[in-house]
Design a binder for these strands. Structure first.
Length: 616
RNA sequence: GGUUCCGUAGCUCAGCUGGAUAGAGCAGCUCACUUCUAAUGAGCAGGUCCCAGGUUCGAAUCCUGGCGGGAUCACCA
């Protein structure tokens, strides 16, 4: 309908100003916005861009166009001009047709664009459980994948799991030393938490060992290696890695384990597989609670070798160069970056090496056209470099890579730091929000007569809606502060507020059914009041919102849309009786309208990974 | 220091490729439930859009330069 309006507008410009025929007027060049509340009208056309070409005053231009469009368009009944803004009032025919359009279940569904897009998100390490940072990542990535799908892309949701390396070996070593054969089953602990616990234990044991060394043998090293004016604390902080690699008993043992792993030592590999298996079971549970799934998983243990091959080939073709010490680099100075290492002097791979291999493996497996990496903004530079290297390697998808970069999550008490134990655990968080939802729900008593199971499912939906919306409503680029109290807030700009709009409609629809009303598409005649028109205008913008969210890689666009629609509906609901309106025609219209609103709210929220309950 | 992101009400945030008098929510103060779910609605109050220039019919928005904050510039991932 918006398109038809634009066409009429274009036609009237051309009719009113024959000299303008030559002027190109793309649909996108015709700017029409919903009219601001202070003025009369539904849509506003800004004529300023035409002033120069038509060599006339804004007032005259707007007036002429207005007169013209009213004369022939069946959709425009009136107009007024305020300072070069042409405000158009639309006919009930327009609203009638628009209502049919937005009520269609297929409204907003885009045809396939025939493109495969991979969206990577979550991407955890196997040495600790998921935390709040992962949650922001997962919500963004998941939502982006849904938005791409809604825009007609064939989407592959993917994660890369960092399942190898020294950190993973630390948990393994620690388990060997301290566990006495304990398992998640025997201890009744979720697998990822179980393994994470041994990682923590390792760090504690290492710190203890390091402290003991500092007051013993370490003194000699201190005196020999410390810089002038450097105190012991500063020195030992700086020296930690060297100590780990050269002096630490458990450090050296862990490094040996890593070497054995790389040499495919059967015993080490068996332990590795067992412990990672525990972790994956734990992750699976968390993903399930969050309502996310993946189509494809890559493991770094399976891609890093391919990355090394790529580098070897790239040396031959002159993309990379080898230094005397054997390390391999790439010179990116002509692209405004610096020299970057891609292979260590001992031949082992770095982060970049693995990412090269992963990208190639993904292309080989899925033939993707484009790729979105959901990774925190601390890695902006890494991805800039990665994309440049892939371009130089001549990868066919290289100019369709996007780093969905997002700001880190802070706590009201400051940064999350694993060393200081301030990390907010994902599983705890989910449990907390469900509990908060339960508390407020119980207080309100809207779920009486339901089974405990049904109630719990609803608490979960509400709690998760609060948590997810709290995070996803914020523009990804921005660093965000996570306030646990605000995250379980259920009033105002929140997930539950939007759910409530939906639930209110469901409640009405249940009453409709009870009353024996038959729900059919509304085709009667009514007069569309201000709020009716505002709601319709808003719903009409849904497809545009989807496109915008995709273009900007920003789910928060969808989040604000849903909130605004819910907000307008709440007001509408307050001011208008749906079921017992002044007459049956108006009632059936309002039922139809409300049904459409519910439909769009549900679709929109689904893109954010938020489900709608029927009761709350 | 180089690069980059951010800076809007007491707090948390919107503000689309420049458009009319800068908007929400929270917190504060009022008011409205025997009524389709009050997890709601209505109202009051709250602003140097970080600062200074520039571009033009018009700048929170674009450009330049500052100021403040984050990130990054590893043979870590």
């Amino acid at each position: 309908m918006l398109l038809k309006l634009k066409q009429d507008l274009k036609k009237s410009v051309h009719n009113a100003f024959p000299t303008a025929r030559g002027i190109e007027m793309e649909d996108s060049a015709i700017i029409i916005n919903p009219t601001k509340k202070e003025f009369d009208g539904d849509y506003t056309f800004v004529v300023f861009p035409l002033v120069k070409a038509l060599r006339n005053s804004p007032q005259n231009i707007a007036d002429a166009i207005g007169k013209e469009i009213v004369s022939f368009s069946e959709y425009v009944v009136d107009y007024n001009v305020v300072q070069g803004f042409l405000n158009l009032s639309l006919s009930s025919k327009y609203w009638q047709e628009l209502l049919q359009e937005v009520a269609d279940e297929q409204f907003g569904v885009k045809p396939s664009v025939g493109q495969k897009m991979m969206v990577e998100f979550s991407s955890p390490n196997t040495n600790k459980p998921l935390h709040l940072g992962h949650i922001r990542n997962i919500l963004l990535g998941w939502s982006m994948s849904q938005i791409a799908e809604a825009n007609g892309f064939d989407v592959i949701k993917s994660q890369i799991i960092n399942d190898r390396g020294i950190a993973v070996c630390k948990s393994m070593m620690s388990w060997q030393m301290f566990a006495n054969g304990a398992t998640p089953q025997s201890e009744n602990i979720k697998g990822d938490h179980f393994v994470g616990g041994y990682y923590v234990k390792f760090e504690q044991a290492f710190q203890e060992e390091y402290r003991a060394w500092q007051v013993g043998d370490g003194q000699a090293v201190l005196n020999e290696h410390k810089k002038e004016n450097e105190d012991a604390d500063a020195f030992f902080k700086r020296y930690k890695n060297t100590y780990f690699n050269e002096y630490s008993v458990i450090g050296v043992k862990t490094k040996e384990m890593l070497l054995k792993w790389e040499a495919s030592d059967p015993e080490v590999k068996a332990l590795w597989e067992k412990m990672n298996g525990w972790v994956y079971e734990g992750f699976e549970e968390t993903y399930k609670a969050l309502g996310v799934t993946f189509d494809s998983i890559n493991y770094e243990s399976e891609t890093y070798l391919l990355g090394k091959e790529t580098v070897e080939k790239g040396i031959e073709s002159g993309i990379f160069y080898k230094k005397d010490d054997g390390s391999v680099w790439i010179d990116l100075e002509d692209a405004g970056m610096d020299h970057k290492i891609v292979l260590r002097s001992d031949g082992t791979s770095v982060y970049m090496t693995q990412d090269l291999g992963t990208a190639q493996m993904r292309y080989a497996e899925h033939g993707i056209d484009s790729m979105v990496y959901t990774v925190a903004d601390e890695q902006d530079y890494h991805f800039k470099v990665l994309f440049e290297i892939l371009k130089r390697l001549g990868e066919p998808y290289a100019d369709k890579l996007f780093h969905l970069s997002y700001g880190m999550v802070d706590l009201t008490t400051g940064k999350m730091k694993s060393r200081e134990g301030t990390v907010v655990d994902a599983d705890d968080l989910v449990a907390d929000v469900a509990q908060a939802a339960k508390d407020s729900s119980t207080e309100r008593g809207g779920l009486e007569g339901m089974s405990e199971e049904e109630k719990d499912a609803i608490y979960h939906k509400i709690g998760l809606a609060a948590l997810k919306y709290f995070i996803i409503k914020i523009n990804p680029r921005k660093r965000m502060t996570f306030d646990p109290n605000a995250s379980v807030d259920m009033q105002g700009t929140t997930g539950p507020y939007i759910q409530n709009a939906y639930v209110r409609i469901q409640s009405v629809l249940r009453k409709v059914k009870q009353a024996g009303f038959e729900q059919v598409p509304f085709e009667g005649q009514i007069s569309y009041e201000t709020l009716d028109r505002e709601l319709l205008v808003m719903m009409a913008s849904y497809p545009i919102v989807l496109e915008e969210a995709l273009e900007k890689y920003d789910p928060s666009v969808v989040a604000s849309f849903c909130y605004n629609l819910a907000k307008n509906f709440h007001r509408y609901y307050h001011d208008n009786v749906i079921l017992d309106a002044e007459n049956a025609v108006v009632s059936s219209y309002r039922i139809y309208l409300a049904t459409s609103i519910a439909q769009i709210l549900k679709k929109g929220m689904k893109l954010l990974g938020i489900e709608m309950p029927d009761y709350m």
